[in-house]
């Protein structure tokens, strides 16, 4: 049985047996892959899975039609499972409200509850950073500060503030985002350099210890901003300096919101 056939079979079974009310997977439309929400076992044939399925499906758990159809079964790669664990630790989903149709590489690992999915993650290395991203980060780190500033001015200039990055991110779930606050206005909404800078920096910072490097934000960006540079940079610091990997378990303390007396102190005098 191929990977997708196995997912279809499990999805249908879960729906038939009333184990879940909805299956969240991918469908195909022309050359694009889109999320698919199905509630009937006979709809599973529309499910597809291939390398073009870039959306991180836990993002859709905040949608009203999904929330009202809990429990749901959700197709997830390891990054998706980590996102689910972040959401669970932040009380955004109940651990028993999801079943994971787990995919690791090209291999289907069956239906897992969140605890079992967490156990699966434990043995896997954190999501790899794309080689071109890692190389660019090293290159940036070696540049003089003013050149780095110039790089980011140019890199973020095309941002139109459409917030597709936010909409595609599984852990960007605030109903009222900080960028929408106006008394005071903390982040300028203008698509000008300072506003673009503030927005993208704030968004990246808010994902520290939460981003699972799923890549959905950059894939969703119509302007192809190099958002993964920011995410991967933070992920690198968090992992290397604090040995913390986002979404590592069900009851992990949050990265921001916990501390250790041995935390990095080198930059403080």
């Amino acid at each position: 049985m191929s990977l997708i056939e196995a997912i279809r079979a499990d999805g249908a079974k879960l729906l038939q047996e009333g184990e879940v009310k909805m299956v969240l997977g991918y469908r195909s439309r022309y050359d694009r892959r889109l999320p698919l929400l199905i509630t009937q076992a006979d709809q599973v044939s529309a499910l597809v899975y291939d390398d073009d399925c870039w959306q991180n499906l836990p993002t859709y758990l905040r949608k009203g039609e999904v929330r009202s159809a809990m429990p749901v079964a959700i197709v997830c790669r390891p990054e998706g499972i980590r996102s689910l664990l972040v959401l669970a630790s932040e009380a955004q989903i109940a651990a028993d409200a999801v079943r994971v149709l787990a995919i690791v590489g090209n291999e289907y690992r069956g239906v897992l509850d969140l605890a079992a999915a967490a156990a699966l993650i434990k043995d896997l290395p954190p999501a790899p950073v794309a080689p071109d991203v890692a190389a660019k980060l090293d290159e940036l780190a070696a540049m003089p500060a003013n050149d780095r500033a110039a790089f980011w001015r140019d890199a973020l200039a095309p941002c139109t503030r459409c917030y597709a990055c936010r909409a595609s991110c599984p852990v960007c779930y605030c109903q009222n985002c900080v960028v929408e606050r106006n008394t005071p206005q903390i982040v300028s909404t203008t698509a000008a350099p300072h506003g673009n800078f503030a927005w993208n920096i704030v968004r990246a910072f808010h994902q520290a210890g939460r981003c699972t490097l799923c890549g959905a934000c950059q894939a969703a960006c119509p302007q192809n901003l190099p958002l993964m540079l920011l995410n991967a940079w933070i992920e690198r610091q968090v992992r290397e300096e604090f040995a913390f990997v986002s979404g590592s378990g069900l009851n992990e303390p949050p990265f921001i919101g916990s501390w250790s007396p041995n935390d990095d102190d080198k930059f403080i005098r």
Binding site: A141, W152, A208, I256, W259, D264, I268, R269
Partner: peptide, 27 residues
């Protein structure tokens, strides 16, 4: 302690964007 952990990440993020330790100081 909470602040230190936030800054540890934030100052590195700003460093990447060209705001380095000549401008942003912690003590």
């Amino acid at each position: 302690f909470h602040a230190r952990r936030r800054w540890a990440i934030f100052h590195r993020l700003l460093e990447l964007t060209g705001i380095d330790s000549s401008r942003l100081h912690f003590s």
